[in-house]
Design a protein around this nucleic acid. Structure first.
Lengths: 195, 195
DNA sequence: GCGGCTATATTTAGGTT
DNA sequence: TAACCTAAATATAGCCG
């Protein structure tokens, strides 16, 4: 009986490795990861558009500060729509303010929850720390996040009368750009009412 | 020889199914997919930021036109930076115009290439069409994309003097929003020089 | 509608060419 | 530099409570 004698030509590749979720130190490595992941991000955005009929605008600055963008149906229409939305929400004094805030918080909470799980797992593995410390830290982070989110919401509601209709949100960044580093390093903002 | 008689408690779940990359018809289904994928998109963006030190701004409109956003370090700083970049590029008359255009084209080409592969595979499977037709169609699409891209680039370079510094790109969307549906349905735009 | 679950579909880290 | 490859890591479609 002739059988394939296991010629598993293990083509050298070690396959995908898990990586630490922190800034990649090696410059060249960071560059390729950026390229690959940017492509992946845009693809995901594209799929979201076709599958759900969503409109999406993405602006990305590479580690070297070069700009890239994605837009459907096109970048400017979405940015423009967002500006108008923002101003009109301001003018209407945002009826669902509290609900929106709660939504934001719950989203961040879910992110946090995930992070917590990972940490807990890692710790259980190494058995170097008690689990409650994770809980404690999460709680602390939660507090920070919550207040940061509330600031964020306030800013979103902060108006901009503007005789120039385009300036609603375009000229306020430098004033508060340092206030929004959450536990996981980024600012999520979701103002929703019913999707 | 006692062997495990396959008690694969198939917990009801059918697992992930492949789906057609087209608008999901069932409203409710579309909603959940939107939520899940939006979360995934934001997470990917978040990772891109932490891993590569990138700056990202995302605005998403749900199928029901509700806005969601992501930003690192925060939404407005990225939008603001982008606006400034755009205007300064315009003012400097864009030295790398051609290179940027070439980059854009090559990106779209890669997308096209992928689509072509898929189509080719499907056709091979069903053996219903000759492969060259795929090539031909791709070529056609390429032409369309190329001209669309060139239009897009021109628009990006089209200035907007503006005594109001914020209006550089905010008031031109309605004029051309219908011009940019590429083969795969979305507008990618990458103006890069070296990343 | 949300969060949880399982089984797969996709993405992508690390190598190689 | 960039394209291609493999295998492991993730994201998620379809179901349930």
């Amino acid at each position: 009986m002739s059988q394939q004698v296991m010629t598993w030509k293990k083509k050298g590749s070690v396959g995908r490795q898990r990586i630490r979720m922190a800034k990649i130190e090696k410059e060249s490595h960071r560059q390729v990861t950026f390229s690959k992941r940017k492509a992946g991000l845009f693809k995901k955005a594209s799929e979201l558009c076709t599958l759900c009929g969503a409109e999406v605008a993405i602006i990305v600055y590479s580690p070297a500060k070069k700009p890239f963008s994605f837009g459907h149906p096109n970048l400017y229409s979405v940015l423009d729509r967002y500006r108008n939305n923002a101003s009109s929400l301001v003018q209407q004094k945002q009826p669902q303010e509290n609900e929106a805030a709660r939504s934001e918080l719950s989203f961040v909470l879910s992110q946090l929850e995930e992070e917590k799980k990972k940490k807990g797992e890692a710790m259980r593995k190494s058995s170097e720390m008690a689990k409650w410390s994770v809980e404690e830290m999460s709680l602390l982070q939660l507090q920070e996040m919550k207040s940061a989110l509330e600031d964020l919401r306030n800013i979103m509601v902060v108006p901009s009368p503007s005789s120039c209709s385009s300036s609603s949100y375009m000229n306020m960044s430098s004033d508060f750009s340092s206030n929004y580093s959450f536990g996981y390093g980024h600012a999520f903002s979701e103002s929703q009412m019913q999707m």
